[in-house]
């Protein structure tokens, strides 16, 4: 009986020691890498933002000049970030994260850059699960489709903000009409949101 108790105690202590050792090792490595990891993430975000707003047209640090907004036009569920690009104190453009809820395989997350005058500076897809080889043509790596939004404005008649299949003026991606439709309407919604809240977004209210 006594040996059984001893054995159990010995095993428990041993297991505890291993748990502590492993945790200590992981904690040590975390301590030595977490700054580097955070920096990697920041640089990645910054690179994405700079693809839309080139560094030479603004003079602030893009990824920290950020506000969080909540609006059904941008995302049905979560608040989304908005980044401001300023030159000499004046906001020259904003980058809004918008979510298209109705992609072919779930949500598509976009970054929509809008110039001060309300025209599109550029659009990028940051996250999606569209079909490889068809719907993934929304990525810049796969096709140039996403660039057709550049310079478009809301003033064009409303029905132009639709894909051709629906009688609009925007080319859809072949065999990926649902994907194209979702992206088009998300960009359109982001522009409408900008129009309704431009004073606030440009930080001039």
């Amino acid at each position: 009986m006594q040996t059984l108790g001893k054995n159990m105690l010995r095993s428990a202590v041993l297991l505890g020691i291993f748990a502590i050792l492993a945790t200590a090792l992981v904690a040590f490595l975390y301590d030595n890498t977490h700054q580097r990891i955070a920096e990697n993430k920041r640089l990645f975000t910054l690179k994405k933002l700079h693809e839309l707003i080139p560094p030479d047209i603004h003079d602030n640090v893009l990824d920290t000049d950020k506000i969080t907004v909540r609006d059904a036009l941008l995302s049905r569920k979560n608040p989304v970030p908005v980044y401001r690009a300023r030159k000499d104190g004046q906001t020259v453009a904003v980058i809004i994260q918008a979510v298209a809820p109705d992609g072919y395989s779930g949500r598509i997350t976009l970054l929509v850059a809008i110039n001060r005058d309300g025209s599109v500076a550029g659009v990028r897809v940051t996250e999606h699960r569209e079909t490889p080889g068809l719907g993934d043509a929304i990525e810049t790596k796969k096709s140039d489709w996403i660039h057709l939004f550049t310079d478009k404005t809301l003033t064009e008649a409303d029905h132009h903000w639709r894909v051709q299949r629906d009688g609009g003026a925007i080319d859809q991606i072949t065999s990926a009409t649902i994907t194209s439709r979702a992206v088009v309407s998300a960009v359109n919604n982001a522009l409408r949101y900008f129009e309704q809240n431009s004073a606030f977004l440009l930080d001039e209210s």
Binding site: I37, N40, K41
Partner: peptide, 19 residues
Amino acid sequence: IVIAAAVTMTDMIMQAFFY
């Protein structure tokens, strides 16, 4: 425990050096 620690560390090393 050993495997979980090894995987977590590999994960961190990748995030830090092969992001």
